[in-house]
Amino acid sequence: MPEGHSVHRIARQFSVNFVGHRVAVSSPQGRFAADATRIDGHVMTDAKAVGKQMFLEFDNGLWLRVHLGLYGAWDFAGDISIDPTIASANGRMGQTNQRGTDLDPILDSPILDAAGENSLHSIGAPRRTRLRMAESEKVEAEITSFPPEPIGQVRVRLLTDTAVADLRGPTACEVLDPAQVDAVIAKLGPDPQVDDGPEAEERFVSIVRRKPTSIALLLMDQSVVSGIGNVYRAELLFRARQNPHTPGKKVPEDTVRALWRDWVHLLRIGVETGQMMTMDDLDDESYRKAMASRDDRHWVYKREGLPCRVCGTNIVMEELGGRKLYWCPVDQA
């Protein structure tokens, strides 16, 4: 499932390529046809994300809400361009707090992901291309005609003169009025990309500190904190050396605050690079390896049976709340 950083990056893609443009809205699959007519032909005026949910506003006051869920993905095609707020002068992805640049520190070129998830490069300078954005980002092919034919079961197609976005497999896709949007957002926990100030931190701390639920489950509860999924959950808890089964109300307050501040830090890196990079203070060679391969990017996630990078104990994987939890039984005891 796409985690919070992916949804914020998708919202930025809409901000750059669709906001301010008149949009033809259709439902090639047919399941969204009725709602599509409510926003078809209107100008998109805003695009924003809160946690794992995205909201697209149109000039008639209506919003398109999308939750990708486990299987959803957006396919962009056309003259796709980078978000200028995080672009450097040469059109590549820009600064992160963890490292001064996303370029290979020796070769001065983009670091490619071995699995083809070249998220540092994929939303580069404007070009006629097809880009898939979900949990990861992949450039799938150059296109020879525009707009390209829909591929597969496209729930919604958003089309401007220069760009097209096709949505497939979402958990939620609906047109809402402003009051309904406010009601959805009111149920969500704080999102550091929306508000990383003291009030958001206090809200998170106060909720966690009064709950008997395990901290591992609380971090995945979108009403407690927005955007954290399975990867970030495992990595945040390891970085805090926190036992995942400890009830929230028994986690020390300074640890809860540290979890929030680390989420602010990691989410910012994820939004700016497209990678869930959770290892800090890497030398140049280790950084290149981590950006090129998910296997070298995380402390515990998907490392069950492998030795802990700190103590050497085998990482444990267990089922918790229907999801896989990865943790070190020694460093997180």
Results as ranks from 00 to 15, higher is better:
Ile86Asn: 13
Pro170Leu: 11
Gly248Thr: 05
Gly189Asp: 05
Pro110Met: 08
Ala134Trp: 03
Leu176Ser: 07
Ser226Lys: 01
Arg233Val: 12
Arg233Lys: 09
Lys249Asp: 07
Glu235Thr: 07
Glu142Phe: 12
Glu235Arg: 02
Val251Ser: 02
Val316Lys: 15
Ala234Thr: 08
Ser136Ile: 01
Glu142Trp: 10
Ile143Asn: 01
Pro148Glu: 09
Val181Cys: 12
Trp74Cys: 01
Ile269Phe: 13
Glu202His: 12
Asp83Gly: 07
Asn314Tyr: 04
Gly72Val: 11
Ala34Trp: 04
Gly169Thr: 07
Leu325Val: 12
Glu272Ser: 12
Asn17Gly: 04
Leu159Asp: 06
Glu135Leu: 11
Gly189Gln: 07
Ser109Leu: 14
Pro126Asn: 07
Ile111Asp: 00
Asp177Leu: 01
Arg12Lys: 10
Leu120Ala: 05
Glu140Cys: 00
Leu131His: 02
Pro126Met: 11
Leu56Asn: 04
Phe146Gly: 01
Thr85Phe: 03
Glu135Thr: 11
Ser214Met: 15
Phe238Trp: 06
Val300Ala: 06
Ile39Arg: 03
Val16Ile: 07
Val251Pro: 01
Ala333Glu: 15
Glu137Arg: 02
Val300Gln: 00
Pro110Asp: 08
Ala172Arg: 09
Asn60Ser: 07
Leu158Ala: 03
Ala114Gly: 02
Pro170Gln: 09
Met54Arg: 11
Ala114Asn: 09
His42Gln: 06
Lys48Thr: 11
Asp35Arg: 04
Arg294Gly: 14
Val16Glu: 15
Val205His: 04
Ser214Asp: 08
Gln153Ile: 04
Pro110Arg: 04
Arg257Ile: 05
Glu142His: 10
Gly197Asn: 02
Ile82Cys: 10
Ile228Met: 03
Thr101Pro: 00
Ala163His: 03
Gly41Leu: 01
Trp299Arg: 04
Ala11Glu: 02
Lys187Ile: 00
Ser26Thr: 15
Thr45Lys: 08
Arg9Gly: 05
Leu320Cys: 10
Ala163Met: 06
Glu201Ser: 07
Val184Ala: 13
Glu174Asp: 13
Asp108Met: 13
Gly152Glu: 12
Asp295Gly: 14
Phe204Val: 10
Val16Asp: 13
Ser122Asp: 15
Thr278Gly: 09
Val50Leu: 12
Thr45Trp: 09
